[in-house]
């Protein structure tokens, strides 16, 4: 099938991710999935908003959260969103090496984000004794933020496998939709994070 379509900048279609039937299906399928993810995260956000004041005399959001850490994490994830845009730009110009480079930068920024999140959770648990079982607020917080962190971890393993599997193949119409699907998923993770830093952290510090 499309495995053997080797492309050069002259023969590359304008939108390689949607040039094949399979690519179009992947594109629509991933958006369908993201619509479902929106609802999934909405239920976790709703649960968090409902339970955020039920601290059971344990630490509250004002006791726990600090602006600096969350700001660094936000910048890391936001920048990784831009670097994956750069990767897709090079994909559309059929520059495989540069696409891999930018995807690598994206993955590194994602790893940095995840490391800060693990540090944050460890800090809450060891310094404040704030765990999943501390209070309803604790359960809702770790479920919501942890689910997002889990999505980051899944996205990281996805892109690492994708980059390694296709490292010697180069770009073709078979794997272009796969890279594009990843980039959409990664942007969506950033969308969820925007609401997490606003609703959980910033709103948790003012009210």
């Amino acid at each position: 099938m499309s495995h053997d379509h080797s492309l050069n900048p002259e023969t590359m279609p304008q939108e390689p991710e949607k040039a094949t039937h399979e690519g179009k299906n992947k594109f629509l399928g991933l958006w369908f999935f993201l619509g479902g993810e929106t609802v999934l995260f909405a239920s976790l956000f709703g649960t968090y908003l409902a339970l955020r004041n039920s601290t059971a005399d344990g630490p509250s959001s004002q006791d726990l959260f600090g602006l600096e850490l969350v700001f660094i994490m936000t910048i890391l994830l936001l920048t990784s969103s831009l670097t994956s845009v750069y990767a897709m730009y090079h994909m559309k110009n059929n520059d495989f090496a540069k696409m891999q480079l930018w995807l690598g930068v994206t993955a590194l920024l994602g790893v940095g984000f995840l490391a800060f999140e693990i540090y944050e959770f460890a800090h809450y648990i060891t310094d404040y004794g704030f765990t999943f079982r501390s209070s309803a607020f604790g359960s809702a917080f770790y479920t919501l933020v942890g689910f997002h962190g889990g999505h980051v971890a899944f996205g990281l393993s996805w892109i690492i496998v994708l980059m390694a599997r296709n490292a010697k193949r180069g770009l073709n119409l078979y794997n272009a939709p796969k890279f594009y699907s990843f980039s959409l998923y990664w942007h969506f993770i950033d969308v969820v994070w925007v609401f997490i830093f606003t609703v959980v952290y910033l709103m948790g510090m003012v009210s």
């Binding site: 993201l34 993810e37 609802v39 239920s43 956000f45 649960t47 908003l49």
Partner: peptide, 16 residues
């Protein structure tokens, strides 16, 4: 798809 998801998300949030 996304606005469909947002619609269901709003209902969920409003309810909770």
């Amino acid at each position: 798809m996304i606005y469909g998801g947002v619609f269901a998300a709003m209902l969920t949030l409003a309810a909770l």
